[in-house]
């Protein structure tokens, strides 16, 4: 843990060398998700609700997903840029150091400019909580926390999976965007609006419904099932197979000729 903070310290010092770039990128990040937000506002100015959810409820869902995604992107960036680590040979360096590979990949990069997105998610969430009439209880506060944590876990799993695939194909990686960027993009609405089939897909295959749909139903009072509150914890289990696949890929790793 101490070593991780050392790494973070180094990264911060490196990034501070490029303040202007950092600032611009953060603003850009903000703008990207802000346009998504705007398009939702536009849609809801034509239609008042979708599948029984009103705008402020949808906004809770969107901000939880965005928050989880930007936290993951910020701290697990090493997996996001993993193909670059392979290409540049940095992975070779990681492998000749006496520490766990996952840890080193994790510590190798951090992108604080994602704070632009995170900030927006926080503002949206606060706004949504004010405009939405949720009957707050202690359980519901826990639910919100668990939703965010579970979201980080699921996205982390997806990022690790993405990194694992880059051992086998670099060019073909684009298809993983369906799961990573796609989950962020389409997770802005409760996944049930895409139909029964997609709900099943997002429950059992790419389990984002575990943190953005079921506990969300409990949160806004559409369901009384208390178990839904705990479902995000299952998101942590999702990391296990992803990690196993990463280990498998590492054994097949063939480095780049130098």
């Amino acid at each position: 843990m101490k070593l991780y903070f050392k790494y973070v310290g180094m990264l911060l010092r490196s990034q501070m060398q490029y303040k202007a770039s950092f600032f611009m990128t953060a603003v850009g990040q903000f703008l990207i998700s802000f346009t998504t937000f705007l398009s939702m506002v536009f849609m809801f100015s034509r239609f008042n609700s979708v599948k029984g959810f009103i705008f402020s409820e949808i906004l809770i869902c969107f901000s939880v997903v965005l928050m989880a995604f930007s936290i993951t992107e910020c701290f697990f960036r090493g997996f996001d840029v993993f193909p670059r680590l392979i290409k540049s040979g940095e992975l070779d360096r990681i492998l000749v150091r006496p520490r766990n590979e996952m840890f080193q990949v994790l510590a190798s990069d951090m992108d604080l400019s994602r704070i632009g997105r995170l900030l927006q998610a926080v503002v949206m969430l606060i706004y949504a909580f004010i405009t939405c009439d949720i009957h707050w209880t202690g359980y519901k506060i826990i639910t919100v926390v668990l939703m965010i944590l579970g979201g980080v876990a699921v996205f982390t799993g997806l990022f690790v999976l993405f990194a694992a695939f880059s051992f086998f194909t670099i060019e073909g990686l684009e298809f993983m965007n369906i799961f990573t960027d796609g989950s962020r993009e389409f997770g802005k609405y409760p996944v049930s609006i895409y139909g029964e089939g997609m709900l099943k897909f997002y429950t059992f295959v790419v389990p984002i419904a575990l943190f953005q749909y079921y506990p969300f139903l409990y949160l806004i009072g559409k369901s009384e099932n208390m178990w839904y509150m705990l479902l995000p914890l299952l998101g942590f289990a999702f990391i296990i197979p992803c990690y196993a696949f990463f280990r498998y890929g590492l054994r097949k790793y063939k480095s780049t000729g130098s």
């Binding site: 040979g89 070779d92 360096r93 492998l95 000749v96 006496p98 766990n100 130098s258």
Partner: peptide, 14 residues
Amino acid sequence: VDHVRDIGVVFGQR
């Protein structure tokens, strides 16, 4: 992990 503790590697181009 145990092995690499005992070795040092210099990649001239990296």
